[in-house]
Amino acid sequence: MKKSLVSVILVASMMLSIGGCGLKKKNDSKILEGNWKADLECEKIVTDELSKDEDTKSNNMAMIDAIKKYADFNELEAIVTFKFNQDGTYSIEPDLEQWNSTWGAFSTAALNGAREYYKSIGVGDAMVEGFESKEEFLGYSIAYTLMDLRIPITKAVFVQQNGKYKAINGKLYINKDSSKDVDITTDYYGTYEITGDSELTVKNRDGVEYICQKE
């Protein structure tokens, strides 16, 4: 009887120990140390944004298909580098010069696709109040479309910041004030996933995903 009681206590102790390990927070801050470069999937960012409204989704996808005849989304490169330092500080650094240059070349080609799309649905065939000519309205529609393409990518690129960070249990916390410690109750940034030792996926609260390779 006494041996049985001892056995039960030992088993219970082991279970509590295992359970405690499962609840322990896994701090990956050290694993993240280094520079991680993300080459953004620009086409995905655009299509995700333009697919949010079900009423316009079909037309938006048709417009993107027309643009892809002239402009290659694979050449629309946007680069962001995450730097996690040994002292617990971080920085997010976009290559803005590269992005603006790449966008200039892409938008020139995309303009032809947007024009073809709007012509196919009759935009520019009739006068619209507030515009001096059919061509002016067509030009306005094209410019508005290019802005729709640019804004979500630019939003993902313009993330330049620095401060302190913590990476715990797949959640990334950052404080932009480097004079203060990270507070995991208020400083949630997004999620992270480490694959092997060379790939890091970070997804912020806006749903933008950065797939990074270690430099």
Rank of each mutant, 00 (worst) to 15 (best):
V6D: 05
V80D: 00
E132S: 13
K68F: 00
G190E: 06
E132Y: 06
T195L: 09
D87P: 06
M147I: 09
I79V: 15
N112E: 13
S133I: 03
K166S: 13
D87T: 09
A110I: 03
A109C: 08
S178Q: 03
M61E: 11
V182N: 05
E132Q: 13
T191S: 15
K24P: 10
E209T: 14
T81P: 06
M63H: 09
M147F: 10
K166A: 12
M127G: 08
W99L: 00
E41K: 11
E132N: 14
S101Q: 11
L40G: 01
K44N: 08
K69S: 05
I31E: 15
Q98E: 14
D187A: 04
F131Q: 02
D181I: 12
E49P: 00
I168A: 07
M61N: 08
S91V: 05
S13A: 15
G34M: 03
I9V: 14
K37W: 11
D53H: 05
E135L: 09
K155W: 03
N169F: 02
V159P: 02
L76I: 06
D125C: 04
A66Y: 00
E136T: 08
L76C: 06
K57N: 10
I184V: 15
D187E: 04
F158N: 15
E209Q: 14
T56Q: 12
N162G: 11
E49S: 12
A156C: 04
G163D: 07
K37I: 15
K166H: 08
D183A: 07
N35I: 03
G22Y: 15
K52D: 13
V128N: 04
K44A: 09
I151K: 11
D125Y: 03
K68N: 00
V46I: 13
I151T: 13
D53E: 09
T108G: 11
I168P: 10
T154K: 07
L146D: 00
A66W: 00
E33W: 01
K176H: 11
Y189C: 11
N175S: 04
I153T: 00
S120C: 08
K57F: 05
V202Q: 07
F137T: 01
E75M: 07
D53P: 11
W99P: 02
V8N: 10
F82A: 03
R205G: 12
E75K: 13
K83I: 12
V159K: 00
V182S: 06
K30Q: 14
G20P: 08
N112W: 06
K68R: 09
Q86M: 07
G113V: 05
Y140N: 10
E49Y: 10
E209G: 09
F158P: 02
I79G: 04
N59P: 11
F73D: 03
D206G: 09
S51P: 03
D72T: 06
R150V: 03
E41N: 15
D125A: 03
N27Q: 06
G163R: 00
Y173A: 02
E54R: 12
T145M: 01
Y144P: 04
Y70F: 13
S101N: 14
D55R: 14
A78C: 12
N100I: 07
D187F: 02
N112C: 09
A78V: 07
A62F: 07
L32G: 01
D72K: 07
M127L: 13
